[in-house]
Design a protein around this nucleic acid. Sequence first.
DNA 1: GGTAAGTACCTTGCAACGCAAGATACTGTG
DNA 2: CACAGTATCTTGCGTTGCAAGGTACTTACC
Lengths: 108, 108
Amino acid sequence: MNIQFKKGVLEICVLSVLARKDCYGYELVNEISKRIDISEGTIYPLLHRLKDEGHVTTYLQESAGGAPRKYYRLTESGRKEEHEQKEEWMRFCASVNALLEGKNNAAE
Amino acid sequence: MNIQFKKGVLEICVLSVLARKDCYGYELVNEISKRIDISEGTIYPLLHRLKDEGHVTTYLQESAGGAPRKYYRLTESGRKEEHEQKEEWMRFCASVNALLEGKNNAAE
DNA sequence: GGTAAGTACCTTGCAACGCAAGATACTGTG
DNA sequence: CACAGTATCTTGCGTTGCAAGGTACTTACC
């Protein structure tokens, strides 16, 4: 899998999963990796970034095994961000596909 | 437009346009920019990379105004690369869209 | 008791890509 | 002569994702 493709997209994936339910980091890795490989070295910095930007809040919960889980919950700005980035992603895909199909004019 | 989305994708766009006709760098910028903004600081290093990897060959042709045009032509390996990257891009898009739609299992 | 695997968090350093901003040089227009 | 357009190129920067490491707890096995 081309690593470059994932740039920017993994953030949408995280936002999208969080839009459906609160998750902790380790859980997000497993959830997203069902479709797209993502490593812990990617998810934790990403989550911290989202928190710094105010798109998520966190709360701790005990775990049966291992360290306590840090759950992430979308804020209102996070939901807005999720929506906007999803839209932008779809527009981008449409542009790329048009280009790959050889449709030359933006009007087509 | 999220810059990150473009990572890796602009290379496919270039390969795809070149698969239809030989182009020079400046022309590729204008062609691709109809759909997706791409700057000269991006295209020239990209083209040099493709040449180093043997995916394109070049030939010069005089221009009415300005410097002579350096045309890029796909090699056989370039055509193969174009095909493979296109396939990978489409698989990637399908995975992302499934994830964004909340389809949890890779089987679905 | 010791060891491994699983859960769960984290950080550091690196590689790759795209962009802005610059340089160069030629042509045509006002 | 100055400017815009054509056409090439390079340097330095910011962002992202990853590999590889570390920490700490629990369970299972020998």
